[in-house]
C-alpha cells in the first residue's frame, strides 16, 4: 500500500493550490476532486457570483487537462456544442468541424439556461463518451469530464434539467457564501488574487490515470458494502421520498466514497467516507413526497443519522 501514500503530495498540492484561488471552500474542493477521481460528471449549483465557474476552471487547470467552456444560452442549438460538417470547395467534400465538446474538461456554464433540446445533446456525450453526428460516431477524448454549473431553478429564464439528465451527473454540490474570514481576505486582495489561467499545472495525464486506478483499488470491506446497501435501501423504503436511488447512483456512491477515502489518505473506505459524500450524490436524485421538491442536504443528513453503521 505504500504506492498509495506516494501520491498524497500531488493530491494535497492540488487541494492547497485550489484553496488559494477559491477561499474558504475546502470541503467543496475536496468533493469536486473526489467526483473527478471517481470519473464522474459534476454539477455545481448556486447563485451567480459565488465562484462556480472559478472552481470548475481551477480544477481543470490543476489537473492539467484540456479545457473548453460553453456558455449556455436559451437560443443555443445542439450543433453549436457538438460541431458541424461544412462543405469544402477544395476537396469537394464535407469536413467535420468539432465543437467545443471535443475536449477533456467541458465547462458547461449555466446549463439550465439552454433549451431541453440542447441540454439533451450532452446526454450521449456524458454517458457514452462519444457523439454521433450525421450518422458517424466520433469518440470523445479520454478522460472526458463535464463540469456544469447551474443557477437555482427559481431564477428567471431557466429550464430545469430533467431527471434523466440529472442522474448522469454523479454529484451535485453547492458552494454557498464564503465565511466572514474568507470573504475579508477576498475583499482585501480582490484584484490581486491568483487567476485559474495563471496556474502552472505540473500534473500529467499519466499521473491522473494512475491515481484513478489507485482509487478503484481502495479496499471496500463487506461491512461497508452492507452499510452502502442499507443506505440505498433506506432511500427506497423511506416514506419521505417519492422513489429511491438507482443502482447507478449506488455504484457512483461507492466510487466517490473510495475517492474520498483516497483523498483522506486511507487505503480502505469507511462509513465516514460514505457519509461525507452521500448528500452530494443523493440530494439531486431524491424528491420529497410532501413537496415534490428535490431533497435538501438536511433531509439527507437526517437519513444518515437514522441508520446505524455496520
Amino acid at each position: 500500500m505504500s504506492s498509495l501514500s506516494e501520491k498524497f503530495p500531488v493530491i494535497h498540492d492540488i487541494i492547497a493550490e485550489a484553496n488559494k484561488i477559491i477561499l474558504g471552500k475546502d470541503a467543496q474542493i475536496r468533493l469536486a476532486l473526489a467526483c473527478l477521481l471517481a470519473r464522474g460528471h459534476l454539477l455545481i449549483e448556486d447563485l451567480p457570483g459565488i465562484g462556480k465557474t472559478t472552481l470548475a476552471h481551477t480544477l481543470a487547470r490543476l489537473l492539467g487537462l484540456r479545457f473548453s467552456r460553453i456558455q449556455f444560452t436559451s437560443d443555443m442549438l445542439p450543433a453549436d456544442i457538438i460541431g458541424i460538417s461544412i462543405f469544402e470547395r477544395e476537396s469537394g467534400d464535407f469536413r467535420f468541424l468539432p465543437g467545443a465538446l471535443f475536449t477533456q474538461v467541458l465547462l458547461a456554464d449555466e446549463i439550465n439556461r439552454a433549451t431541453p433540446k440542447t441540454q439533451s445533446a450532452l446526454l450521449e456525450a456524458m454517458e457514452e463518451k462519444q457523439v454521433t453526428v450525421e450518422g458517424r460516431t466520433r469518440p470523445l477524448p479520454d478522460p472526458f469530464f463535464v463540469i456544469a454549473t447551474q443557477n437555482p431553478s427559481t431564477q428567471i429564464g431557466t429550464f430545469p434539467l430533467p431527471e434523466s439528465q440529472l442522474d448522469r451527473f454523479l454529484m451535485r454540490i453547492e458552494i454557498g457564501y464564503p465565511d466572514r474570514e474568507a470573504e475579508r481576505t477576498l475583499l482585501e486582495n480582490g484584484g490581486r488574487r491568483a487567476h485559474p489561467d495563471e496556474i502552472n499545472a505540473d500534473f500529467t495525464l499519466r499521473q491522473l490515470e494512475e491515481i484513478q486506478r489507485s482509487v478503484s483499488k481502495v479496499h471496500v470491506a463487506p461491512a461497508l458494502l452492507d452499510y452502502v446497501q442499507n443506505l440505498v435501501d433506506l432511500t427506497r423504503n423511506h416514506t419521505s421520498f417519492m422513489y429511491g436511488l438507482s443502482p447507478r447512483a449506488a455504484l457512483g456512491l461507492l466510487a466517490v466514497a473510495r475517492a474520498w477515502a483516497f483523498i483522506e489518505g486511507r487505503e480502505m473506505a469507511l462509513p465516514e467516507d460514505v457519509q461525507a459524500v452521500f448528500p452530494s450524490i443523493a440530494a439531486h436524485r431524491l424528491r420529497l413526497t410532501n413537496s415534490g421538491e428535490y431533497a435538501g442536504h438536511d433531509d439527507i443528513n437526517a437519513l444518515i443519522r437514522s441508520l446505524p453503521v455496520v
Binding site: S5, F8, D26, A27, G265, Q275, A276, N301, R305
Partner: peptide, 22 residues
C-alpha cells in the same frame, strides 16, 4: 503515526465542522 498526523493536519478542522453540522 503518519496517518494520524495527516488526519490531524489536513482534515481535522473541516471534518470537525462537518461533524458538528451532522
Amino acid at each position: 503515526a503518519r496517518l494520524e498526523k495527516r488526519l490531524h493536519v489536513d482534515s481535522r478542522d473541516w471534518k470537525a465542522a462537518l461533524l458538528r453540522f451532522l
